[in-house]
Structure formats: C-alpha cells, structure tokens
Amino acid sequence: MSARDDDFKADLLQGTLHLLVLKALVAQPLHGLGVSNRISQITNGTFDVKPGSLFPALHRMEEAGWLKAEWGESENKRRAKFYSLTKAGRRQLDTETEDWQRISIAMTSALRAS
C-alpha cells in the first residue's frame, strides 16, 4: 500500500470514527473498551477500533465539548472513565448524521452514474 492510500484511509476513518463514537454513546455512557465493543457490535464487526485511535478521538471530542468524562465503576467493579454525550455532542451527532447521509447518497448516485 502506498502512503497516499494510508492518508486517505486515515481521513476517512477520522470522520467516520467521530460519528461512530457519538452513535455508540447515544444509548448510555460507556468507558473506552465499552465504546470500542459497542462500535464493533453496531457495525457487525466491520470496525474494530484500536486504542491507538480510540483514545485520541475520545479526548479530541471531549475538548470539542461533545463528550464529557467521569470516573465511575465498571460492571465488574473496576474503576473506569465513562464518556457520555453532551448537548453539543447530540447536536453534533445530528449534524454529522445528516452530512453523512447526504455524502452517502451523493456517493452512491455518483457511483451508479454511467
């Protein structure tokens, strides 16, 4: 694979990852591993988010004010940092979903065009 392919994939993932994390957190607050598992679950295993990209994304989104983090206890009584959506995060999810749907429709129609 060439370097250009790498960049492209990363860019794509960046946008997607935010959307996926937002989506994963809609139902309930989750810790890092929970987010990772949830994404894996809702994408039927297509996306397996590694910590190397997950944590930077979580922190970036926290800085942007979309997520807020709190220390809490995991299901098996371990200390873990839980992320949840803020109001701005929910708005962001709506915007990004809309954007994504637009792009997705555009892309699909573009690819179908002969």
Binding site: H31, L33, P51, F55, S74, N76, R78, R79, A80, K81
Partner: peptide, 17 residues
C-alpha cells in the same frame, strides 16, 4: 495521572474480558 489511570483501566477491563 488521569490519562495513565485511564489507559491502565482499559488494559484491566480488556484483560477481564
């Protein structure tokens, strides 16, 4: 410290899993 704990907790949870 917060960051270190967060990463450690991730490893811990993954190990449990």
């Amino acid at each position: 410290r917060d960051l270190r704990e967060e990463v450690n907790s991730y490893v811990e949870l993954l190990t449990q899993e």
